[in-house]
Design a protein around this nucleic acid. Structure first.
Lengths: 337, 337
DNA sequence: ACTGGCACTCCATACTTTCGAGTGCCAAGT
DNA sequence: ACTTGGCACTCGAAAGTATGGAGTGCCAGT
């Protein structure tokens, strides 16, 4: 259906268009790439490619630009992920290893990725679902208020204020804290509900109401924080590209947690790096953007995702390389801390 | 020097220009405002105002637009802060009171302010300097690693990983935790260094190195976290305004913590709401923007600042009203939690 | 199956024209 | 000493009018 030369032509079109941002014509193609045939031949090939929907012309008698379908073919079959240079890898490593807590790791990662790709970087905080309880802390902060602090093995710290039905003695708190820790230590977060089910029965009748309120907040925390936190950086890079009026839409989309969520969340799985191009994208405002996403995690279980968002006209091999590399390093850093 | 009518003219020019975004001419002025004189008279006044530097014309024979100096005069003497409507105030209140922890309060505040003003909102986390220690927690996370968690009375939770020189027993940790809490409870953060000075001498010789490492991290945390955290929202609103090419600069500035810092930090004091207009602004990329800032806090001590950033051509009375109102409500919310 | 040639299309660019809002200034009126 | 109507003038925005060139499709010839 598409012979080798036609594929080569498509590849050349994508590459040229990405680097020049101008529709590319048959003449320019034969000049810049050694295709060994004349421009007329290329024109015929281009006509076929257009008919099949891989490229299109902005207006009659202009050059061609790739369609989303064209980019898709390019990504799937015509390009390979471009590894970062040694210097870049070293830079990533030293930059990330300077981080001292989870917030810092995530913050540095997102900045790094934005700078590396000159696009908008998006990083999701490590998921709680797979983590286990390292420690639970109860701190009295007022006469009928407790602060619940939950520390996980991934270094994440969750905090919530609990309103207790009445005053609680230091002693009860200590007791409850001990109970919680013994029954939750090392417990997977998804198992917490069953692990605490029996708890109320182990305390004196006086403390029952308190325990109930603590547990309800605890379970609530697990559920709510399940909607992961996502940060992004590099919005300034959007301004460099010409999004005409849709820039506003893109910025708006970026500020919606839910949208970011879907952006990363619905990405396919299997391979190391996933790409979603233009209209493949679920969200309205992001129809003219592409997303490159990768999982990261320690060992072989995934903690969360990170990625890059940019115009469909982006350097896919390079971006994919950067995303993959950063994802790996973040995994390493998290494993070591 | 400037009689009442000239001031009225300046006010009218600012108001019209803000609402129409077009240079305003003498004719339009007499039409839209009841000034009781002819356009020729207005022209004379405008000539004077221009000579004094309060207004300028983009090109010969166009209408006039206010200069930074003109806006300054407008803000200082020609306008009053516009209170929010009752409905708006109720909306703020209900929206903010739904928050359940510090992050949430700040997050909601910044979104709210952005939406209310249709501009970029900036909120600084409550300062640590005035807060006191509520609780210190030490949690073992690996054989020679501890997690230090510091909880303050403002509900802020700081966490840091500590590498200990060697393994530490559960017992030592418990002992140290108790020591720390007794000597730090209720202690102002600035007094922590002196409060812990004697600590190493109170433990057995074996634990000295551990204590030393814990304390060094603790003190470090106090210093580092002193650089306050700042968040912003509403970047999409920038796209609606025409910043021509400087939009990129503005976005870049917004992503720099340091710049945001100065933005809020160097604002004057005294009155409830401070305005910095255009070139009064310290930062390069923000020369075409204005900033409206207010302190917020509980009772009469200031915890931090929040504000709004927008084009110099902004609705100052309305923005100032929104900023002031939000600042007050945040203070109330924080006081109550 | 490829190529050179050719007529054709149509966008970008630059140049011109027109239109009108707005100005400055002046002489006359209060 | 202000204010006002009038008037000539300026200059940008908008709309029309060439012109050039990159690019195309198609066809006949190898």
């Amino acid at each position: 259906m598409l012979d080798d030369r036609k594929l080569a032509v498509l590849r050349a079109i994508v590459e040229d268009y990405v680097s020049t941002n101008e529709p590319v014509g048959s003449k320019a193609l034969v000049d810049r790439h050694r295709l060994g045939v004349s421009s007329a031949t290329i024109r015929n090939d281009m006509a076929v490619l257009e008919e099949q929907g891989y490229i299109t012309q902005p207006h009659t008698s202009a050059g061609r630009i790739p369609t989303d379908k064209g980019y898709r073919l390019f990504v799937d079959r015509l390009s390979t992920i471009k590894p970062l240079s040694a210097a870049e890898r070293r830079a990533i490593e030293t930059f990330l290893s300077g981080a001292y807590d989870l917030d810092d790791v995530v913050g540095r990662t997102v900045k790094l990725l934005a700078q590396l790709t000159r696009q908008v970087a998006v990083v999701q905080y490590p998921s709680l679902t797979r983590s286990t309880v390292r420690h639970v802390e109860l701190v009295p902060v007022a006469v009928n208020r407790l602060l619940l602090v939950l520390i996980t093995n991934t270094g994440r710290v969750e905090q919530r204020v609990i309103e207790t039905p009445g005053p609680v003695s230091e002693e009860s708190i200590g007791h409850l804290r001990a109970l919680l820790n013994t029954c939750l230590d090392g417990c997977g977060l998804s198992e917490v509900p069953t692990a605490v089910a029996e708890l109320p029965e182990k305390v004196g009748a006086d403390d029952r109401p308190v325990v109930a309120s603590v547990l309800s907040v605890l379970l609530e925390t697990l559920v709510e924080k399940h909607e992961e936190k996502i940060v992004f950086a590099g919005a300034a890079n959007l301004a460099a590209v010409d999004f005409s009026r849709s820039l506003r839409d893109v910025l708006e989309a970026l500020e919606e947690q839910v949208v970011l969520m879907r952006l990363l969340g619905e990405a396919g799985d299997s391979s190391s790096v996933t790409v979603r191009i233009g209209t493949e994208n679920p969200d309205e405002g992001l129809r003219s953007t592409s997303v490159v996403v990768a999982d990261y995690g320690v060992g072989d279980h995934t903690l969360a995702r990170l990625g890059v968002l940019g115009p469909t006209r982006m350097d896919y091999p390079g971006t994919m390389g950067a995303v993959r590399a950063v994802a790996r390093y973040v995994g390493q850093i998290l494993a070591g801390s």
